[in-house]
C-alpha cells in the first residue's frame, strides 16, 4: 500500500520524502489545484527542484511525484489548465491527478503516456462512475471521496476497474468532495471554482465581550469561550442554531484518522493511502508521515498481529483539529 503524502512547498516535500513517503503530491501555484492558497504550491522552478529531490531520495528508494491539477477548468481561463497538463507531461511526473473531464480528455489525447489518477474532486463513489472515467480517459487510479463506509470500500475494491486510493489522515471533509459549494454560497469561492474552501480573505477573527468570534463572509461561524481553542471558520464545522438548539449541527472540529483500518484496507486490496494537508507545515508533514510509515511497515512485518500503538494515536491526535480524530464515514454510526 503506497503512502501518498502532501507537500505545499519544498521543505514539506523534503520532510515527506525524508520520513518515508512512497509518493508525494503537489500543485502548481495557481487555481488549477484544490489548495490554492497564498504562499503555497510550486512554481515551474520549484517543481523541477521537487522532481530532483524525489529522484535523488537519500533513503535510496525511488519516490513518485504526483501533480494535482484537480479543480474544474473555468470558462474564463481554460488554457491555464491545459498548460498545467502540458507541464506535467514535460516534467515526466509519475501521475497527474485530475477531476474535470475536459482536463482528463485533453491529457489522455495529447499525452497518452501520462499516468492519470482521478481526483477525489471528481466525486466518483461507485463502480459505474469509475468505469466511465476508465473507459473514456484510461485512468489508472481513483481517489475515493470520504463518504463510503469500510464495507462499501471493500465491495467497491472487488469490482473497481482501476486501483483505489483512500484517505488515511487529515482534515475531514464532511461532504462528498467536488459536490460541496457551501463555501461559494457564503464567500463566492469554492473548491470547484477557485480551488479554495473558506478562503482566508473572507475570514475574520474578533475578540468580543462574548469571547472569540470567527466569521466567514461576515457571518458568525462560531464563538469560543476563553478556555476553548478557536478553530478556523469552516462552514461545516461551525456552531449553529437548529430547532432552537445551538450545536455543531454538521460536524465537530475533528480530523480523519484511519490508522486502525490498515489491516482491512490491505486485505481489501486498496493500492494507496493518502495523507491530506498540502496547507500544513513541514513539521506536521514530517510527523504524520513518520507515524504512518512506521505503522505500515509494522503491519507488513507482522500482518497477523498488527495493533495500533498508543504513541501513534496520541501523536496523531496532537496534530488533529480540536485534538480529536474520527473514522468518519468508514464507520457507519458516524453517518
Amino acid at each position: 500500500m503506497e503512502l501518498v503524502c502532501p507537500a505545499g512547498n519544498l521543505p514539506s516535500l523534503k520532510a515527506a520524502v525524508d520520513n518515508g513517503a512512497d509518493a508525494v503530491y503537489i500543485g502548481f501555484r495557481d487555481e488549477t489545484n484544490a489548495r490554492h492558497f497564498a504562499g503555497l504550491n510550486f512554481s515551474d522552478q520549484r517543481a523541477i527542484k521537487a522532481l530532483d529531490y524525489v529522484n535523488k531520495n537519500p533513503r535510496g528508494k525511488k519516490v513518485r511525484l504526483f501533480v494535482a491539477v484537480n479543480t474544474y477548468a473555468q470558462a474564463t481561463n481554460w488554457n491555464r489548465w491545459k498548460k498545467a497538463v502540458d507541464m506535467c507531461a514535460d516534467f515526466g511526473v509519475d501521475a497527474l491527478i485530475a477531476a474535470d473531464i475536459s482536463v482528463l480528455d485533453y491529457a489522455s489525447k495529447r499525452h497518452p503516456d501520462l499516468n492519470l489518477h482521478l481526483s477525489v474532486q471528481a466525486s466518483a463513489t461507485n463502480q459505474a462512475s469509475l468505469s466511465f472515467y476508465h473507459d473514456h480517459f484510461g485512468i489508472k487510479r481513483a481517489v475515493l471521496p470520504r463518504v463510503l463506509s469500510l464495507k462499501q470500500v471493500e465491495r467497491l475494491a472487488q469490482k473497481s476497474p482501476v486501483e483505489l486510493e483512500v484517505f488515511a489522515f487529515g482534515s475531514l471533509c464532511i461532504m462528498a468532495e467536488g459536490r460541496c459549494i457551501l463555501s461559494s454560497y457564503v464567500t463566492g469561492e469554492s473548491p470547484n471554482t477557485a480551488g479554495a474552501c473558506s478562503p482566508a480573505s473572507a475570514v475574520r477573527w474578533q475578540t468580543t465581550a462574548n469571547g472569540m468570534e470567527t466569521r466567514l463572509g461576515g457571518l458568525l461561524i462560531d464563538r469560543f469561550d476563553n478556555n476553548e481553542q478557536a478553530g478556523y471558520p469552516t462552514l461545516c464545522k461551525g456552531r449553529f442554531e437548529v430547532n432552537g438548539k445551538v450545536s455543531h449541527a454538521i460536524e465537530e472540529p475533528t480530523s480523519l484518522n484511519t490508522l486502525d483500518l490498515i489491516p482491512e484496507l490491505y486485505q481489501a486490496g486498496i493500492s494507496a493511502v493518502k495523507i491530506e494537508g498540502r496547507q500544513r507545515s513541514p513539521a506536521y508533514v514530517a510527523e504524520v508521515v513518520r507515524i504512518w510509515r512506521e505503522a505500515i511497515d509494522h503491519y507488513q512485518t507482522n500482518p497477523t498481529s498488527f495493533s495500533t500503538h498508543e504513541r501513534w494515536m496520541s501523536g496523531l491526535a496532537k496534530l488533529s483539529e480540536g485534538s480529536q480524530t474520527t473514522l468518519g464515514a468508514y464507520n457507519r454510526p458516524w453517518q
Binding site: 470520504r146 463518504v147 463510503l148 463506509s149 464532511i174 461532504m175 462528498a176 459536490r179 460541496c180 459549494i181 457551501l182 454560497y185 461545516c236 437548529v242 430547532n243 449541527a249 454538521i250 460536524e251 468518519g328 464515514a329 458516524w334 453517518q335
Partner: peptide
C-alpha cells in the same frame, strides 16, 4: 439551492 451532499444524514443528527 442544492449546495452539498454527505454520507451523514443531518436530519437524523438533528
Amino acid at each position: 439551492l442544492p449546495l452539498a451532499y454527505s454520507a451523514r444524514c443531518f436530519t437524523a443528527r438533528t
